[in-house]
């Protein structure tokens, strides 16, 4: 027995465009979706749960993560209820739901709060550099240390607990009995999805989108590796320097295309961008772009006199690492992969 909660829809509206109330339950969206099958029939069920306010159903569901927003459901919805956008909103809502700190929800719902967070971090970085008397070497050194430290701590204190919560919501709460060994058996699925996002290929006409996404993921991870482990900014190794250049160029070109797309709203997926979407692509773009320029400055020996360039990069980096990665859209990357993994486990059970 479930109680209907009409106020829930209003909460979801805060996470995205809210046309879904118009749904008259024809099921067209589910039927046109090329990712649905007998085991996973969405998005109508999620629309229904959102309308009725059955939040249990949504928290325990993996459906929002299984959707890659090709937009077919939205363009063919007879009531123009835009189920695809709802799935997007639900992903944002779930991100907030999984996050034990509660910050994710605040950041996503309130643009003001997000801007505030960005400004605070920026001020923090500037304050720190003033404290360090704008000493390039120290700042860059600490910047590198910060990278390593933040990865470790964000992962340990935020992402891991949140993934754990996700696991609790989708496996434990619904009472699914999974043998321990299954988690290992299906682990390869997690890796495959995480690095290839191969499921997107199931969507019609999205080969390019998938390919760009794939390159971006690899570019990003490689740049992360290059800067953190191989110490791109500090190295003299020509190969590593070149590698870093290529990676950063790839990132800022692809993200530039993504931003352009969001501005043009040429695809269904781009029609209703939320601040969190903008932050993600723009910061990723800035990350690649500033890293590139910083290295250029280093190579041209300009960095000493242009510490502001590195500071700019560092601000972007800190914001990225402390806001976007743990609480923003970046987490989709993990949640989605884990969702595939959990879904596989559920199906095996």
């Amino acid at each position: 027995m479930a109680k209907i909660n009409p106020d829930f829809a209003k909460e979801i509206f805060k996470y995205g465009n809210g046309d879904f109330n118009a749904c008259y339950n024809c099921g067209n969206c589910t039927a046109v979706c090329s990712l649905t099958d007998e085991h996973n029939s969405f998005p109508r069920k999620m629309v229904r749960a959102s309308v009725l306010g059955l939040d249990e159903k949504i928290t325990t569901s993996l459906d929002p993560w299984l959707c890659y927003y090709c937009g077919d459901c939205a363009t063919t919805c007879p009531r123009e209820a835009n189920p695809g956008e709802l799935m997007m909103s639900l992903r944002r809502w779930l991100t907030a739901k999984y996050d034990w700190t509660g910050l994710s929800g605040l950041l996503q719902k309130s643009l003001l709060f997000s801007l505030f967070a960005f400004i605070i971090t920026a001020i923090g970085v500037i304050y720190y550099s003033v404290y360090q008397n704008f000493n390039v070497e120290t700042i860059m050194h600490h910047g590198h240390l910060f990278e390593m430290l933040s990865i470790a701590s964000v992962f340990t204190f935020i992402i891991l607990p949140n993934l754990f919560r996700m696991w609790y919501f989708v496996i434990i709460k619904p009472g699914i009995k999974v043998k321990f060994i299954t988690y290992f058996k299906e682990f390869q699925d997690l890796l495959i999805h995480m690095f290839t996002q191969k499921r997107t290929l199931g969507c019609d006409d999205s080969q390019t989108r998938w390919f760009m996404h794939l390159i971006l993921v690899f570019g990003y991870l490689a740049l992360l590796f290059t800067t953190v482990v191989l110490d791109w900014f500090g190295t003299e190794n020509l190969f590593i320097i070149l590698l870093g250049y290529i990676e950063s160029v790839v990132i800022f070109i692809i993200t530039f295309i993504f931003v352009a797309g969001r501005i043009q709203k040429n695809k269904e997926v781009n029609k209703f961008s939320q601040p969190s979407d903008w932050f993600f692509v723009i910061w990723l773009f800035l990350l690649g772009f500033t890293a590139f320029i910083v290295r250029v400055f280093i190579d041209l020996d300009l960095i000493e006199n242009n510490i502001w360039m590195y500071l700019f990069h560092l601000i972007v980096l800190v914001q990225w690492a402390l806001i976007i990665v743990p609480f923003g859209k970046w987490t989709h990357f993990l949640y989605r992969s884990f969702a595939m993994y959990f879904d596989k486990i559920k199906q095996v059970v």
């Binding site: 209907i4 009409p6 008259y24």
Partner: peptide, 24 residues
């Protein structure tokens, strides 16, 4: 099963958009 035939369908749409909940 709602039977807002003809142009009356518009009302059904309007009500759903306004957040009325339909259970069948």
């Amino acid at each position: 099963g709602i039977r807002t035939y003809g142009k009356q369908e518009k009302l059904y749409h309007e009500a759903s958009e306004a957040g009325d909940i339909f259970l069948q």
